[in-house]
């Protein structure tokens, strides 16, 4: 896990505090980035401060802190770098991305994602993010995804009345035209709960046998 020490470039003898060194370098990089970003803005005078004055001085301060940390990392014994696992951040990142893309639909150049509303985005986010840990179980996540989405629909849509897209319009049109939007919402939530219960009941007996297959092997958890 602690692969940091030999990855850090060291010309001036052994690095004694790799964590400090690397975090110092990150701060310096951030400072340079901020200075570059504000380079086209006027700094102004004290009497009429321009938009760039404060960010630029902050960047200088951050850079100095970074340099100090680099010095500390080179001269004093400190913590090694902690290992990064890839699985968690990548999977959770994808889950959040999927939620954002599908909740209201998204158009970005050639990329066109249809609006799925909470009905699509919710289960998608739960299901994908669930696999961020190697303990993920397919059946559990399926039930959780359905039940929680149903709960959220009633909570956010019905009780709190927040303007969140609940389902694609095509889906809402499936209901009889006489139904009010609240009735459609509740019916949808009911269907989801029913599905969750059906999955629970249908797989209840076979759970024991299925368990070993459900557990995803550990080898995906990588480090850098």
């Amino acid at each position: 896990m602690h692969a940091g020490t030999d990855r850090v470039p060291s010309r001036r003898g052994p690095v004694r505090g790799p964590q400090s060194l690397v975090s110092g370098l990150v701060l310096v990089a951030l400072a340079l980035f901020a200075i570059w970003l504000t380079s086209d803005l006027p700094q102004g005078t004290l009497r009429a401060m321009g938009p760039a004055m404060l960010p630029r001085w902050l960047a200088v301060g951050i850079g100095l802190c970074g340099i100090a940390l680099v010095v500390v990392g080179l001269t004093r014994d400190g913590h090694p770098l902690e290992g990064f696992s890839l699985r968690g951040p990548v999977v959770v990142g994808i889950a959040i991305l999927c939620f954002g893309l599908t909740i209201r639909g998204f158009a970005f150049g050639a990329l066109q994602v249809p609006q799925l509303g909470l009905l699509g985005a919710g289960p998608l986010a739960i299901f994908i993010s669930g696999f961020a840990t190697h303990e993920a179980r397919f059946r559990e996540l399926a039930i959780l995804a359905l039940a929680l989405t149903s709960f959220c629909m009633v909570l956010f849509g019905d009780l709190l009345n927040l303007p969140i897209p609940m389902y694609p319009q095509v889906f809402a049109d499936l209901y009889p035209s006489g139904w009010s939007s609240d009735a459609r919402l509740r019916a949808t939530a009911g269907i989801l709960v029913a599905l969750a219960v059906i999955i629970f009941a249908a797989t209840h007996r076979r759970r024991r046998a299925a368990e070993p297959i459900d557990v995803v092997p550990d080898e995906h958890a990588g480090t850098i």
């Binding site: 986010a125 840990t133 929680l148 956010f156």
Partner: peptide, 13 residues
């Protein structure tokens, strides 16, 4: 393993 997908969902909504 069930809690964090739920937290994520609530945060996103």
């Amino acid at each position: 393993r069930l809690m964090f997908p739920a937290i994520l969902m609530f945060c996103s909504i």
